[in-house]
Every structure is written in structure tokens, then in C-alpha cells.
Computed example of a mutant assay.
Amino acid sequence: MRAVDLLGLAAVDTAGRSLGKVHDVRLETGAPPTPDSGEPAFAISALLIGKAGYAHRLGYGRGQMAGPWPLTSFFRRMAKRSIVVPWSDVEEVGTHLISVRVDSREHSAGGEAT
């Protein structure tokens, strides 16, 4: 599976409720080298799901970014509309749908899913 295959897939929680679409993936180093080239490989560590995944990509989801207060306020509110789901919480990846072990009611305010 390639990470690009996950982008745009709909995600649902354990009860079948929609969480939104996958907008980005987080990668980590440490995967075994690829057999064909021997180059280091990356493994998927988390999925960014929801309407405003780009706010997480910019660092506003974890409070890492600060800037002019209007931008900080705007992007932090946008980050609350998405969640970060660890790859270990992914139950099933289908051709059009991803099922994750996350209750959407617990993450209605957005943020990191644990």
C-alpha cells in the first residue's frame, strides 16, 4: 500500500459515524530498507482526518506555531475540525473507506486521538 492511496478516503469510527476524509499522513523513519534500492523507508505513523487537516500540517493542532493572533486564532479553530489518528488505531482499509478505533463523539473538538 502506498500513502497516496489513503488520501481522500472516507473515514468512519467504531459505530460507523463519519469522521471526514483523510487529508494527510504522518510518516516516521525506522521502517526496513526497501529491497530494490536499499534506501531507508518510511512507515505511516498517523492519519490526519477531517475538514481542516492543513491546520495540523502547519503546526497549529499541537500549539507549536504562534504568529499574528488573527492567524493563530483562525488556524487553531480550523485544527479543531480535524483529528490525528495513530496508525495503530486503523482497523481496516478498504477501497473507499477506512475504519478506525476512535469514537467521533470523543473528538468533536478535534485534536490528537489516543
Rank of each mutant, 00 (worst) to 15 (best):
H96K: 15
F75K: 06
E91R: 12
W87Q: 13
M65S: 02
Y60N: 02
G63L: 00
E92V: 11
V85Y: 01
M78Q: 09
K80R: 15
G94S: 10
S88Y: 01
S73I: 08
L71I: 13
E92M: 12
G94T: 04
D103P: 01
G111C: 10
H56N: 10
R105W: 06
R101T: 04
G59Y: 02
G53Q: 07
R81P: 11
G53A: 08
S104G: 08
H56D: 10
A109D: 12
S104P: 14
V90R: 01
V84H: 07
H107W: 04
R77P: 10
V100C: 11
F74G: 00
G61N: 08
H107M: 03
R62P: 03
P68I: 04
T95N: 09
S82H: 02
V85P: 02
L97S: 01
H96D: 12
A109G: 13
P86W: 05
S73C: 13
E106V: 00
G59L: 06
W69N: 05
E91M: 15
G110F: 03
R105G: 08
V84I: 14
D103S: 00
R57C: 13
G67I: 00
V93A: 02
E91T: 14
V85F: 08
M78W: 03
P86V: 09
S73T: 15
G94F: 03
Y60T: 12
P70Q: 02
R101F: 02
S73Q: 14
R81M: 13
V102L: 00
G67F: 05
P86C: 06
R101E: 07
A66V: 14
S104Q: 09
V102C: 08
D89M: 15
Y60R: 10
F75D: 10
E92W: 07
H107C: 00
G63P: 08
H96A: 15
S108D: 11
V85R: 00
A109H: 09
T95S: 12
W69V: 08
M65P: 05
P86A: 02
G61A: 02
H96S: 14
L58R: 07
T72E: 10
P68Q: 04
R76K: 03
G110A: 04
G94C: 14
A52H: 14
M65G: 08
W87Y: 11
V90L: 06
D89E: 15
R81I: 03
W87C: 10
G61Y: 01
P70D: 06
V93N: 05
R105V: 03
V84M: 14
E92A: 15
A55L: 09
V84L: 13
V100N: 06
K80L: 13
T95P: 01
S99M: 15
H107V: 12
W69M: 12
E92S: 10
R76W: 09
S88A: 15
Y60S: 01
V90G: 03
Y60F: 03
E91Q: 15
K80I: 00
A66W: 13
S99G: 12
E91H: 13
E106K: 09
I98H: 12
A109T: 13
S88M: 01
K80G: 15
R77H: 11
T95F: 09
A52E: 13
I83G: 07
G110Y: 04
Q64K: 12
G63F: 02
S99L: 15
S99P: 05
